[in-house]
Design a protein around this nucleic acid. Structure first.
Lengths: 159, 159
DNA sequence: CTCAATTAGACAGCCTAGGTGACCAATAGT
DNA sequence: ACTATTGGTCACCTAGGCTGTCTAATTGAG
């Protein structure tokens, strides 16, 4: 049913997933098998200045406890480090490691590649218009990245 | 960073959430407080013919076990019924109740209203082009609706 | 300067909504 | 008839949210 609002919503989600799933699959193919969209976005936020758990939580619109869990995972995998903040003994300063940056850069490159492919399909001007309209729709609201966890699991009917 | 693939993905997710969050909030305002996007989409799939747990799972690209869980919730709230299938004793035939249809129709109406508002902002022809491009991007892949669970929770830093 | 309020982080425990594997009953296909 | 497939259920796991409570450190008001 084209022209339906619900279908528009489905398409928007579908578009997001089309891009994101492809990135995660490609990252896995390159050896980064346990990266999730939320990790990408978290690392992006950390490099953008959210260098403590509480701040990261605020950036991602999740609680500081949840942010701490995500950070723990990133730390385990060697994507971020936590060391003492010389100016505030309560804080653990977050830093993305070289490995983390590598994944981040590769993820961005794959995203850009997908966008380029789409741009060639529909035309540069058209894509610009598309993005402008979408920006108008979304406005200035921050985008919440929760509920993205299992975004990349394989399907599979088992029973 | 406009022109970035990652930003495009963020915008697509943001667009979906903008629409969906607004629908859920409005439904809650109208007294349907525990409806989640996944419920909307599940009821839609059931009316579209996915009248058993296994089929619903396939439609939503989730396992039949997860589908059964969702169905249990819908049944508890009186949105769907399950009765015996006269042609197949294994199946429990799903049917959306009058109440379920009410919610479904209202949800659709709100979605359509939001789409109309946007249409007025950017123009009918523009929106059509937008949807065509988006359809091209998404292609024929079914859209997975998992990970939508907490999509409507309030934020709130507590500790 | 002291003391209350705030903040960062850790720990415990809960919830939701996914997932898997194992199993049984019923159906379908050879 | 016998086997394979399918629908449904049970038990249990996992990820990533959540809250509440606690300690330690910092901030700010008097």
């Amino acid at each position: 049913m084209p022209g339906s609002g619900a279908e528009l919503a489905r398409l928007l989600l579908g578009g997001f997933r089309t891009l994101t799933d492809a990135v995660i699959v490609e990252l896995a193919r390159r050896g980064y098998e346990d990266v999730r969209p939320v990790h990408e976005f978290a690392m992006r936020a950390i490099t953008a200045g959210a260098d403590s758990a509480s701040e990261l939580g605020r950036h991602l619109s999740i609680s500081k406890q949840s942010a701490a869990k995500t950070i723990a995972v990133l730390q385990e995998r060697g994507y971020v480090t936590r060391d003492k903040d010389p100016h505030d003994a309560r804080r653990k300063r977050l830093q993305v490691t070289a490995l983390g940056f590598t994944v981040l850069r590769q993820g961005e490159a794959i995203f850009d590649e997908l966008r380029d492919q789409w741009e060639q399909q529909i035309g540069t001007a058209e894509l610009e218009v598309f993005e402008r309209h979408l920006t108008a729709l979304v406005g200035t609201r921050p985008t919440r990245f929760d509920t993205l966890g299992q975004l990349t699991r394989d399907l599979g009917e088992t029973g």
